[in-house]
Design a protein around this nucleic acid. Structure first.
Lengths: 334, 334
DNA sequence: CCGTATCACTGAAACGGTTCACAACCTTGA
DNA sequence: TCAAGGTTGTGAACCGTTTCAGTGATACGG
């Protein structure tokens, strides 16, 4: 028989105090040491545990943090979500993990739903950082953005993508690659893709020839996209703006009988643990995922606890050279 | 200005009805068509959305389902969690994802916390299915178990592990392997490991020589464990009871200069998407993950909606042959 | 024409906490 | 001795719904 749980009133009765006093006592405020001890004992005795729902209704705080991911088909984002969820749990909060699957409209809807669900704050990986609803959202609750800057957030863990792109392209350039395909994650109807403009700008600087395409995160779909671009353009290297997309390139290359890096080089972005296991290992831009997790959790906790001072943490990447980028084949003469 | 949201009283006032009538109307009960229309219009006008917290307090239902995973370091379980979370969202429920990290004590604590959090039900991958608290828990809310049977659950999605193990071992046997290492996921202090007894029993039947060890799911830690067992026993094949552990064997084999399947064969269990990408592809026991997700979501929805009829779905595996299991080297004579 | 259902709706009591305003008591300092 | 101030604790309002019991109508069967 799961008998009804004890209420605060029963504890009050047991101790001869008022419910208010018990409430204060259990949260360590405004009462004498001795009373606190008595209340604690009675609570333990009765197996009393404050009902989080009632507490949320009365206090306005739910202890839940919304975690709005860009696309959980991306293994790296999965790791990020798992890490953040664990980190929040350690701070006695729960994560409500939602997946925008790369769709700005869905992202907007989910953000709305999370707010309606009364989360204490949100950690987001914006699909469409330029969407106007963000600033509105940021006014109604603390938001920590990961990856992109967002107007009005309480905190930001931003990536120095400029540096990441430079690292990747300079390495490709140094290895002699000139004709490069860029594969960025597919996002339904995002107007401008910052990654694309960043990469093309940097490519211009280096005198590289870039052809741009998009690919979904899922392995099967990414493979199709990679297949198409390899077929159509025969680049000497493909730069994937997410490791999970690079995995698709591996699969497509196998299908096409292309060897990596002999026939085509592959550069990733993220450094998911699996990337070290492929043959050849995926050369990729490494973003310290643990650092990101820690920073996000720390900023969110601080903001949700009221210390909503706007803070910004910038992540710096490093290049992780493995075997997937080789020298470009020397075409033609000289 | 995020002005306070509208309450049901304001809608009542706007329509000239009582709050009760509005409450009924918005849920399509007990009121005339015409009133319903009027209420809907007024609610839309005011931007009214029922507060889930207040609703939960009054009705006792939170629309949240706890998802208690065995170990989210396992990539396959990550996929499972992501899939279930998405499936529940489609049914207008939220998933509260928690990670027991293979620890029965932690599992117990988290289950307790989820119940305190007033979830409408729990989907669990039990680390310790024999723990006594499960049956108690099952009495207080609907539970759907994945992987293992649990006393008193509303639903079960169980794996025919017997068949899975047979599939794997018979294949290894057919390929000439006799000396096999078994690597099962590490779980803190679980008394008996069903996987071990299942495998050793089947191995006996087939006349196989099995040495048992455990490995954590994380790549680095799994690699260490694999390294040790390869070093110590030089098995001709290692059977990993999770693909993520097999990944560790790949890494360890590389460190040791062992070729797969030339020097050592590897058999997995799960079939995570990445397993097809390794070189050689991981031969593994494939459990239809989409089917599991669908079944779990369906059972949970049904149970949480009151149709708590105890249901059991049994999953059947198939063997996915890729390249990681080869013929055993012929040792000695004949 | 009367009793009985049915329908549409209302009032008030939950649900289980938190928090505000205030009271009682005890110190303290002048 | 008295005003000021600091602790402890209290009572009641409140958070925003749902739900139960009940109230007038209106319809209906006999």
């Amino acid at each position: 028989m799961p008998r009804k749980r004890a209420t605060i009133r029963e504890v009050a009765q047991a101790t001869g105090l008022s419910p208010a006093a018990v409430s204060y006592a259990l949260r360590g405020m405004q009462v004498s040491e001795e009373t606190m001890e008595r209340v604690r004992a009675a609570a333990a005795e009765l197996g009393y545990e404050a009902d989080p729902i009632a507490r949320a209704l009365a206090s306005g705080r739910t202890n839940m943090i919304g975690l709005l991911c860009g696309s959980l088909e991306d293994l790296w984002q999965q790791s990020l979500a798992v890490g953040i969820s664990r980190g929040l749990r350690e701070k006695d909060r729960y994560a409500l993990i939602l997946d925008a699957v790369g769709d700005p409209a869905r992202e907007r809807a989910l953000a709305q739903q999370l707010r309606d669900q009364r989360v204490d704050g949100m950690i987001v990986q914006p699909v469409d950082p330029a969407a106007p609803f963000w600033s509105e959202l940021c006014e109604s609750l603390p938001v920590v953005a990961i990856g992109d800057s967002l107007a009005g957030t309480a905190g930001e863990v931003v990536f120095d993508n400029r540096r990441g792109v430079t690292l990747a392209l300079e390495h490709l350039h140094a290895m002699g690659h000139r004709r490069i395909a860029l594969l960025t994650p597919t996002m339904t109807s995002t107007p401008d893709r910052p990654a694309d403009v960043l990469v093309t700008a940097e490519a211009d600087r280096l005198g590289l020839d870039i052809v741009v395409a998009t690919a979904p995160h899922g392995l099967a779909a990414a493979t199709d996209a990679a297949h198409r671009i390899l077929d159509a353009h025969r680049p000497s290297a493909v730069f994937c703006f997410a490791d999970s997309i690079a995995y698709g390139v591996y699969a497509a290359a196998a299908e096409l009988g292309l060897s990596i890096p002999g026939d085509v080089s592959v550069m990733g972005y993220d450094n998911h643990p699996m990337s070290s296991l492929l043959t050849p290992g995926l050369t990729t831009v490494d973003w310290d995922i643990d650092g990101i997790v820690r920073a996000a959790v720390r900023l969110m906790s601080a903001a949700a606890d009221g210390g909503a001072r706007r803070r910004r943490v910038v992540q710096q990447p490093t290049l992780r050279e493995r075997g997937s980028v080789g020298h470009a084949p020397t075409v033609g003469g000289a």
